[in-house]
Amino acid sequence: MATYGIGRVVERTLEGRARGGEHSLRPLLFLGALWFCLFFALLFLVVLVATTLLDGAARLDLRLFTEFPASAPERAGARPAILGSLWVILATAIMAIPLGIAAAVHLEEFSNQKNWFNRFIEVNIQNLAAIPSIVYGMLTLSALALLGIANKNMVWVGALALAMLILPVIIIATREALRAVPLEIRQGSLALGATPLQTTLRNTLPAAIPGIATGTILALSRALGEAAPLLLLGGLVYLTFDPNGFASGYTTMPIQIFNWTGRPQDGFHELAAATSILLLVLLVAMNAVAIVIRNKFQKRW
């Protein structure tokens, strides 16, 4: 009797599922649509990567790293652009990371969050993160004009624009990393007689470093792939020497790619594709490092 009762209940439930459940037409259609969207997005990526690889593989040799740009594609390489990218990213990191972390620490740990001015800043940092990169190029350009600096093609000038571009991203990532550190950790530190500054520097900030590192690396990889503001700041030059300092002239990989794609000869298009592969590998490597850091240190309490 009892068994029969339970059996009936189960039967009815299963039947109910079958009518509007996961094997009926509508959910299957929806699932199919989702898979199609995913497929479509992946298709673009695969085509893009595959054509770039096919075009550029032939020129992905040592010459790309050792040669300077030249009028004949077979003698040309991206050496100054590669070095330039490294210099610019280094300068960007030096400017943006300390400033971004310090700003985030102030906003998260010390400022009064109820103060209207601080809330105004907070909203605007979110806005800044969404501003098109070329605007930062224009901003830097007008700042240089005000300062009367005529020579724009310097590593630190490009880095300044990129630093402003990624500063909001670093601030937001750092704040989130700090917020993930439990309040109890801060209280424990303060209850031992540590000052708020000691608590931040010795406890909260070190605990947040994995999150900060992840966000910062992702931000730097965005800066590495950026061309627009640098084009505006005179990064598009024909360089026949190695960039060798923060005040040196420079060009970067994205700009070099932009330059070469605009040339009529096929050889330059191959070079552009080869440089794209290199840039792609660098970006994937940086993102991989960020992901490894995130996974390794994820949730320690």
């Binding site: 439990p182 109890e184 950790i185 209280q187 424990g188 530190s189 303060l190 209850a191 031992l192 007689g193 540590a194 000052t195 000691q198 010795r202 406890n203 070190p206 605990a207 320690r300 309490w301």
Partner: peptide, 29 residues
């Protein structure tokens, strides 16, 4: 707070080594 210490409801060790957890208070003070 140094003279009047506090132990909380939920254990809240710092994400550091056992040694550094103990040494933290004397160091910051």
């Amino acid at each position: 707070r140094r003279r009047i210490g506090m132990v909380f409801q939920k254990p809240n060790p710092f994400p550091k080594s056992i040694y550094d957890n103990i040494a933290y208070g004397p160091r910051v003070n």
